[in-house]
Simulated scan of single mutants.
Amino acid sequence: MRKSILLLLLFVVSIQVHAQEQSKGSPRIIILATGGTIAGSGESATKAAYTAGKVPIDDLLNAVPQIHNYGKISGEQIASIGSQDMNIATWLKLTKRINEIFAKDEADAVVVTHGTDTQEETAYFLDLTVMSDKPVVIVGAMRPSTAMSQDGNRNLLDAIVVAADPKSVGKGVLVAMNEKVFDARDVTKTSTTDLETFKSKNFGPVGLIYDGKVQYYYQSLRSPLKKFDVTKLNSLPQVEIIYGYADANPNSVYCVTNSGPKGVVYAGMGNGNFNAPVGKALAEAAKKGIIVCRSGRAGSGRITLDNEVKDAELGFVVSDDLNPQKARVLLMLSLTETSNRAKIQQNFFDY
């Protein structure tokens, strides 16, 4: 009898030791939920109407039990909003929580569920402000969780695959969507409804996800080596975007620049171009100390410095190949450290 009890105890201990050894090798991944379509719910499985951010994180995790095969998974609800309502306060809350998680060694990787409307902006903001080289993966969906052909479950599983892979360390913030992996700096949303909406128009995806594995093909050389410290910040400098178009009225520039921004991004035609009246209004803003950044509405390509536009003479900076919404993110963060145009211009060439 005693021998049987002893054997049973040894068996139980061996199971516990084996479980501990397995858990040691399993990455700890925290999912931070912000809402969005991936957490959306609608009344019909076949219609497009839905409300974003209704499904809590625990329900999202329970819907994809396979994620637990890739690590020790837990979730936290940071916000429950559609990403059209994403704001700087939530950005700061999110990046501070991620930095806290890594500083306290609470996890080996973080996945952020997010709406697709502003997903690229959040990804780039986190890329510039998360201090760790541990994986941070942003994921979303184009169809709500209640849709017949919803894409959120698969995207979430793929994001966990990417976050759990040791090769994802040191690659900056990544976006996992539609079986592809994108660099946060270069990815953009290209369609209002298509499942394959996220693309990197200039360079393409950095990796592919298939059969529960991620394969990387290249890594961006523009991943920031120095990050912006937002630990003590509760807001960011005001930066607005002005859209360029044929026969644009300069009053749009005056309305924006008179509202007190520290910077403006001009989404210009072609190579960041503008008509003469708009150029005059932008130059006046630059003389007042507002940082004017020329970007482009075309969606890809570089904005060249001192080429067609005399940027040095007018007091402008250029966004290089950042689209207007991402140029705004970098300009806001740059203005937390300096208002020197030359230094800000260098940031656009370095980050």
Rank of each mutant, 00 (worst) to 15 (best):
V173R: 00
L174H: 04
L174D: 05
A176Y: 03
M177K: 02
M177R: 01
M177P: 05
K180W: 02
F182W: 06
D183N: 14
D186S: 15
V187K: 04
T188R: 10
T188D: 12
T188H: 06
T192H: 09
D194V: 02
D194F: 07
D194C: 05
L195Q: 06
L195W: 01
T197K: 09
T197A: 15
F198D: 06
S200K: 01
K201T: 12
N202H: 11
N202I: 05
N202Q: 11
F203E: 00
G204F: 10
V206G: 00
V206L: 10
L208H: 12
L208S: 14
Y210Q: 12
D211G: 10
G212V: 08
G212Y: 04
K213A: 14
Q215I: 11
Y216E: 06
Y217M: 15
Y217H: 13
Y217Q: 11
Y218L: 11
Y218Q: 07
Q219F: 07
Q219S: 15
Q219R: 06
L221E: 13
L221N: 12
P224G: 05
P224K: 00
K226T: 14
K227I: 11
F228I: 13
V230S: 02
T231M: 06
T231S: 15
K232L: 12
N234R: 10
S235K: 13
Q238M: 13
V239T: 05
I242G: 00
Y243K: 08
G244D: 03
D247I: 06
D247G: 08
A248P: 01
A248E: 13
A248Q: 15
N251V: 09
N251K: 14
N251F: 03
N251R: 12
N251L: 12
